[in-house]
Design a protein around this nucleic acid. Sequence first.
DNA 1: CATTCTCCTTGACTTTAGTCAAAGACATTG
DNA 2: CAATGTCTTTGACTAAAGTCAAGGAGAATG
Lengths: 318, 318
Amino acid sequence: MDRQSVEQVRRFNRTVTQRIGALNDRFMSRDRPLGEARVLWEIGGGDGTTVRSLRNRLDLDAGYMSRLLRSLQADGMATVEPHPDDRRVRVARLTDDGLEERALLDRLSDQMARSFLSPLKESQQARLVEAMGVVERLLTAGLVEFDVADPTSPDAQHCLDAYVDELDGRFEGGFDPDRSISADADELTEPDGLFLLARLHGEPVACGALKFHHNEPAELKRMWVDPSARGLGLGRRILAELEEQARRHRVTTVRLETNRTLTEAITLYRSAGYKEVEPFNDEPYAHHWFEKDLDVDSVAGTQLPGPGSRDRGGRTVQ
Amino acid sequence: MDRQSVEQVRRFNRTVTQRIGALNDRFMSRDRPLGEARVLWEIGGGDGTTVRSLRNRLDLDAGYMSRLLRSLQADGMATVEPHPDDRRVRVARLTDDGLEERALLDRLSDQMARSFLSPLKESQQARLVEAMGVVERLLTAGLVEFDVADPTSPDAQHCLDAYVDELDGRFEGGFDPDRSISADADELTEPDGLFLLARLHGEPVACGALKFHHNEPAELKRMWVDPSARGLGLGRRILAELEEQARRHRVTTVRLETNRTLTEAITLYRSAGYKEVEPFNDEPYAHHWFEKDLDVDSVAGTQLPGPGSRDRGGRTVQ
DNA sequence: CATTCTCCTTGACTTTAGTCAAAGACATTG
DNA sequence: CAATGTCTTTGACTAAAGTCAAGGAGAATG
């Protein structure tokens, strides 16, 4: 990473981030404290939002959050009521006035976006929008955190359920995990295997798993990327992380089987150095079997902490 | 401007700007209030900074600024002394401790920049840096404000001096404005002409001027763009603004002459529809003469306010 | 050289943001 | 059903951010 790149990133942080960010805040808090405005915005136009989820999304103290809601309530912008299913939980909902205010913020936000584009010629507008997309995606990709997780944890279950749903939708005859070769929680927990989870802003967005077989090749299982996070190169990173973990467990060969409808995955495996081999098991849903020999010597050591870990303070690690 | 573009800009504002901005603030204020940290940073490592300029750059209240400086002084980070030339003005300067602290912030800023890049593959890093550059330049370009200004004002003089210096450096035999066709302040002031100034964050970065000749073609003069602002398309925008102003003054034809060493300018004129014509004056420094007929019918009307005007509150207009 | 203006500081606030612990209302569980 | 745990609110603070007006020191001006 050269000096020039670092300079460019810093200039970007200063110029774009600071200036536009300040602008954003200023317009958000038109005549109300920024904190309140943000809560107003986050409650959203839908069916209401639990206080808990507001607190998580805005990363605010429970007491503070409560006070902000009280203040919005006093302004007639929101109501807070107990959740019908669990009366400890409370749900905030915007009143008509609140909805109107939020719609105004929405229009202003639009107007601000337009004001960035309007001074530019059309070709420049297109270039700006394109470049913003690239920056957004690549920075987002950098914020993803990988952890070995318990496959029975809620986040892991979310991924595994989504994985099954997706295969069921894509395979010609659907997908029933009971008919497939097993990859149960205990098989994906050390020392028999491991489950790797990728999170973005705390939300699970991708996963992958390994089953170890002592001196036999390890099996790669349950590779999945959330649709909203595709195109960030997460699949490739999950794969690399799993291989890294496999090396740490002294695995020399990794194997996997896959279905012919999963074309992106097949492309990924090939480009990551996996070679197609003869079927090594009788997985009924598989059409292709792949294998890769790992270079055990190069177990990577140091890794700089990504911005994600810094961003979220100490709460990241489980 | 389509809906998708606006959405992308908004997503960018949310994701990139907010998140990175917050990150930036958090690391800036390590163990001292953000306000103080910003002042510490802005004072800089150089020969000291006047309190007034700090106030302008950070856009803070005079009283608040004073208090922040007092606080840095108490921490032994800075000194504040009267300006030698004008003892009302006071100059803030960092102490050795202050310089050390600032160097630390500098290193952290570097580290943060690296942390954005390090999770990415090299090719992705390059794409990110490239895209950040594009976003920065195009957003910056959108923040430039154009005003008709008094050519005797300090900002205008700055541009005119820089213009003369630049020509003097680039023309084969130097440039002496007294030997060239005149473009004095009164000739560039309405109703005889006008002087257009482009500012970025309040600093003059480009200019251009017109001399009107009643029913004769108007003359285009003093086109200049600050080296730091080249590549933003400012030349083209100055040109377009001047033509717009000319149309408002019922000018039907604009003329200009230029020197062969000014190749970018010549390219610009040609691409903006200027046709090379026979010499129409005896400007000693000129090698090319250009002319363009204006379409008088289409005097543009509405113009959306750029983000610049919003950004700087009411203080933008002179 | 008195007046006016500029630049900065100070005092006296207010508002926003945020923290922490106690407690109340409700749900869950052995 | 008592004990324990969860979710949220309230009270009691603190720190940071920001505003406003008065005033003092120095420069500029008629």
